[in-house]
Each structure stands twice: as C-alpha cells, then as structure tokens.
C-alpha cells in the first residue's frame, strides 16, 4: 500500500521515528488487536491504538454506559448514557481515525465463543473487570499462542503484564487460580482513582505497539506494579512455572472453563 497525503500527515510523528518509520506504520495499519472490555482500561487502550492507526480493533463488552463510568471511561460521554459501551467506543474511535476498522461485539466471552472470536487477531488486550474473564482470556490465549497484554486496577494501584505463550510466563504462572468470589474487592466496592486506568491503559497500549512493531522488550516474565500515591513503578520478576496448569510441561487444563459467575460483574 501507499500512504495517502492525509496518512503521511496523520502518522508523520511515527514515520519520523527510526523504530517505526513508514514500514512500521504499514505494519500497524495491517494489524488486528482485540480488546476485552470497553471500560476503564479498554477506553484508553482503544483510544491510543486507534490514534496509532492499528488497522482493525475488535472490542467486546456486555454493558451499557452509566453515569458512574464517566469518571474514568474516557471514550464514552454524557450523551451516551444507556448506549452499549461497544457502540459508544466505536463512535468515538471512528471519529478519531477513519482508517481504523472497529468491530463492536456486544456480549460476553465464554468458553464456547472465545476461541473463534480472538483467533483472527494478532494481540489480545485484557481490560476486563472480573476474574472469570481474566482466566478464560489467559487460557484461550495460551491455547492459541496469542500474545496477551493484561492490565488490572484498583484504588490507587495498577498492574500490567505481557503474556507471550511459549516464550514467557502466563497469568496462571503468576496466580494459578482465581481467588474465591468476594476475596478481592471490585472497583465498585473499593473505588478507583479515575486517572489510574489511563496510566495502566497507556502502558498496555505501548506494549501492544511494541509487540506489533517487534521493537523493545515486552513485559515478558515480569509484572509491572504502579502505585499512584507513592509514585512508584516496581517491576517484579515472574518466572515461568514449569508446573503451570495451562502452559506448563504437563498441563492439567486441557479445555476452557467458565468459572462460576459469583463475582461482581459491575464496575471496571
């Protein structure tokens, strides 16, 4: 493909970078990224990936925009209350960059649909707000050997990690199984600083672009923990677990499972 005059202008700051250039920008335009969730994390991740010119962005979410979302979910707005979040995000992203094909899927990922849905994508981004989805997405990405950039936020703290199946750790190497329902509070119960998903989402978007461009070192075998109050970034080593139930030498999980949805499904 050749860039149009508009694309030369739109992506000029990328093209100038030696690490991106015209070739890297063309790679981004040909890439497909799937976002799990159009909430606190999905909004900034989708926003920046759209601005960056990632050619296809799929988004799944089952919720509608509520007033309490707008303190942090920056792709939505007061005029979108009641609208499905994926529709609202699609509107915002299409307006930002018409080069990007936004595929909006209203619904929930399950063990029966996830493999088909994410199979066509190059990278998956987890911005979900619940453990059942988080583990389902991890297991599906490991099975399909799909890069996964996972993020999580609560109160003033957030985490990012990048799973490159076969090369590094996975989410189950870090936390083998979901905690019992109720043990870890949700954002709805415990609150979250509105800007926090912006920080973590921007880090996730950065990881995605690095993977797509093949530049830099991804957060493989490590977990980055950000604390807004102390302004600290801690990078913790996460070795691959040889006995991991999904990515280890002898996996005990050989089929996807839907955990009991006894977890809080709101917030995010």
């Amino acid at each position: 493909m050749e860039f149009t005059d508009e694309q030369v202008q739109r992506y000029s700051r990328h093209i100038i970078l030696p690490e991106v250039g015209g070739k890297g920008q063309k790679k981004l335009l040909a890439s497909k990224v799937f976002l799990v969730g159009a909430g606190g994390l999905g909004c900034p991740v989708g926003y920046y990936l759209t601005a960056a010119g990632v050619g296809t962005i799929g988004i799944v979410d089952n919720d509608e925009v509520e007033l309490s979302n707008l303190q942090r979910q920056i792709a939505h707005g007061t005029d979108r209350l009641g609208m499905p979040k994926v529709e609202s995000a699609k509107k915002t992203f299409q307006n930002l960059n018409p080069d990007v094909n936004i595929i909006a899927l209203r619904g929930r990922l399950t063990k029966d649909n996830i493999l088909d849905i994410i199979n066509d994508y190059d990278v998956v981004v987890d911005g979900s707000d619940n453990f059942p989805t988080r583990y389902l997405v991890n297991d599906a990405c490991v099975m399909l050997k799909k890069p996964l950039v996972s993020g999580a936020i609560l109160r003033f703290e957030g985490q990012v990690t990048t799973v490159l199946p076969g090369e590094g750790h996975c989410y189950r190497c870090l936390f083998e199984a979901p905690p019992p329902p109720g043990l870890v509070p949700s954002c709805q119960e415990a609150g979250v600083l509105g800007v926090l998903p912006g920080v973590i989402g921007a880090l996730q978007a950065t990881e995605v672009l690095k993977i797509l461009l093949g530049k830099g070192q991804p957060l493989k075998n490590s977990l980055l923990i950000y604390n807004a109050l102390s302004v600290s970034f801690r990078k913790v080593k996460v070795p691959r677990n040889p006995d991991c139930p999904i990515c280890g030498a002898h996996p005990t999980i050989t089929a996807l499972q839907d955990y009991d949805q006894g977890y809080c499904q709101l917030g995010g």
Partner: peptide, 14 residues
C-alpha cells in the same frame, strides 16, 4: 517541515 523529511524518509526506506 516536517513533511519534507517524512517524504524523504519514506522514499529512502524503499
């Protein structure tokens, strides 16, 4: 500028 360099860079990349 900067489109002068952007165009020149795109040309030299190929």
């Amino acid at each position: 500028c900067p489109y002068t360099f952007v165009k020149a860079k795109l040309a030299i990349e190929d």
